[in-house]
């Protein structure tokens, strides 16, 4: 087990390292001169200023040198400053990161609370009208784009009913984006749960449990659910990654002040240092949380824990 965790951590570090390379190359992948592009919208910049920025970002040096410079700065916690306003990028991101994490984690919670029971009941009632209608609903759910679902929810609950604010930064404002993101993934999770539960329900140990004379509720809660939940925990890591990705879209729909919204703004402003910082922070969070969830999985599955 320790070996597995160690391997997992090393591969995580590798992923982040690859990301740093990608981030350095990013500027050069966009056609045209990066500094020109960055300042294309502001007329007031003089050629001297542009040259100054260029050397400040190290863009006048060879790429490998740029990489080492960038890495050196990052390792000291210096992610650079924004192009306009000269704010430290890291601070800007870290201030908003909790908002994004709050959104992704509460959406994950909603996904699980909605998706897992639906999948469980569909599997238990397989082949009945209940199964068919739940799974048809799930297919429709999967095909609805989250920005559209977000706009609909906003229309109904904020504009028509006036129950929830359209946008803002307190806890109440988290509800709509979290529900949007959560529901968008609940459909997929319900299908995954269903197929995993179908597998569990057809296992020999279910028959053994019944042969012992246990009541059906006990057979389901102790023998089926326990095994089914292990599979559910197994998909938490992947689901969290989806939530983080989805958060970028949903944050913009609801003007939720997370790093996803900042990222889109930076892209519009061609603010390369912020975009780079965003990608690195995003990748790190995804990798770290996935590792934690994977370790959780290893820890709750005795087959892996004691092998």
């Amino acid at each position: 087990m320790t070996r597995y965790i160690l391997k997992r951590i090393l591969s995580g570090i590798f992923t982040i390292w690859v990301t740093t390379i990608a981030v350095t190359l990013l500027i050069h992948l966009v056609p045209g001169d990066p500094v020109q592009i960055m300042f294309a919208q502001s007329q007031s910049t003089t050629p001297e200023q542009i040259e100054q920025i260029r050397s400040q970002l190290g863009l006048d040096r060879p790429i490998y040198e740029q990489y080492f410079m960038y890495m050196g700065r990052i390792l000291q916690g210096d992610f650079g400053t924004t192009i306009r306003g000269n704010q430290p990028v890291l601070e800007l991101l870290l201030v908003r990161l909790p908002n994004t994490l709050a959104l992704a984690l509460s959406a994950l919670l909603i996904t699980m609370l909605v998706g897992v029971p639906i999948g469980f009941f569909a599997a238990y009632k397989r082949g009945t009208w209940l199964d068919t209608s739940l799974m048809t609903g799930a297919i429709i759910g999967i095909s609805i784009p989250s920005f559209w679902l977000g706009l609909m929810l906003m229309y109904v609950f904020s504009i028509r009913l006036g129950w929830l604010p359209v946008s803002g930064t307190d806890f109440k404002n988290l509800i709509l984006p979290a529900v949007t993101l959560g529901l968008a993934n609940a459909a997929a999770v319900s299908r995954l749960t269903r197929s995993s539960m179908l597998d569990v329900l057809s296992q020999d140990y279910m028959r053994t449990a019944r042969a012992k004379g246990l009541a059906e509720t006990l057979v389901l809660s102790r023998h089926a659910l326990r095994n089914g939940l292990i599979n559910v925990v197994n998909m938490l890591g992947l689901q969290f990654t989806y939530m983080m990705g989805g958060a970028i879209v949903v944050e913009n729909v609801f003007a939720w002040n997370g790093i996803g919204r900042l990222a889109i703004q930076s892209i519009f402003q061609r603010d390369y240092p912020t975009i780079q910082g965003f990608i690195l922070i995003f990748a790190t969070v995804v990798v770290v949380v996935s590792i934690v969830l994977d370790i959780l999985y290893v820890w709750i599955d005795p087959r892996i824990k004691y092998s």
Binding site: Y205, R207, T208, R210, K212, P302, R303
Partner: peptide, 23 residues
């Protein structure tokens, strides 16, 4: 159910799959 596993028991072919792996 009161009889199963009590007055009449049944054991099965493959003890690997017939036992619950997580209990």
């Amino acid at each position: 159910r009161r009889l199963r596993g009590n007055r009449i028991s049944m054991i099965f072919q493959d003890p690997m799959t017939s036992l619950n792996p997580v209990l």
